[in-house]
């Protein structure tokens, strides 16, 4: 469970990216975060895995304060969270297999664990036949699936994606979203910041709408924007 209590974030340059945000995301939920550019979606996400610290307020994950956490415990917080980005962030000199295995090596997994687990997640995202290809040999959607596989491989309890379909066409985007839905159905919390109105409107999941650093709407089975 993720809880924000009255969280504000002012960047060093004076930009007030979040203003008193309070929200709660239960374990196993599927949540869209929507809102215009500059609303503070990415900032909210960065606070969850402690890339940034809030200026004010408290954040808890499973009852543990993210803010008061010692910095040497941060890696272990991040192992609980799988991150997916708009620009995939794959290592271009490594194959799909190596990219996914990289995340396991970083947390100290052994060779046999890796050779067993990587094909397993690759299958989950539909990439089991592309393990030996390099990112440049893949389509955008396949690259994003690789990134998702990497985020999943250490079995995190939360998956956070910041505009995961921002660089993809609508059909491909649907494939990626199906992927997230499968992951969510296995019990993983999924949080997605997105501008993909068509998808949000069809999937009817919980929607947290932001504007100017504030939560302006939070509804179950919501849509991208209320008709005004």
């Amino acid at each position: 469970m993720i809880s924000f209590f009255n969280v504000s974030k002012v960047y060093p340059n004076g930009v007030n990216a979040l203003r008193g945000v309070s929200l709660q995301i239960e374990t196993g939920e599927f949540v869209f975060i929507v809102g215009p550019s500059g609303a503070g979606k990415s900032t909210l996400i960065k606070l969850i895995f402690r890339e940034e610290l809030p200026t004010k307020g408290q954040i808890y994950i499973d009852g543990r304060s993210v803010i008061r956490m010692r910095s040497r415990d941060v890696p272990y917080l991040r192992r609980q969270i799988g991150m997916v980005f708009q620009d995939f962030r794959l290592l271009s000199d490594r194959t799909v297999f190596e990219n996914v295995a990289f995340a396991m090596k970083v947390v100290g997994a052994g060779r046999s664990e890796i050779t067993a687990r990587v094909p397993e997640v690759a299958k989950l995202v539909g990439l089991e036949k592309r393990l030996d290809d390099y990112p440049t040999q893949l389509s955008g959607g396949e690259q994003q699936r690789t990134a998702i596989a990497r985020a999943l491989v250490n079995k995190p309890s939360i998956i956070i994606a910041d505009e995961p379909t921002g660089n993809l066409d609508i059909d491909t985007s649907w494939g990626i979203m199906d992927c997230f839905r499968d992951i969510n159905e296995q019990g993983t919390t999924v949080i997605i910041a997105t501008h993909a109105k068509e998808i949000v409107d069809v999937m009817r999941q919980r929607v947290i709408a932001m504007n100017c650093g504030q939560v302006v709407r939070d509804e179950q089975r919501g849509v991208y924007a209320n008709a005004t």
């Binding site: 895995f49 890696p75 272990y76 991040r78 192992r79 991150m83 962030r89 970083v106 250490n154």
Partner: peptide, 16 residues
């Protein structure tokens, strides 16, 4: 730096 960035995201310790 890209690799390091990814390492940090997936939870590598500083010493690692």
């Amino acid at each position: 730096r890209k690799e390091i960035n990814i390492m940090k995201y997936v939870g590598a310790t500083d010493w690692f």
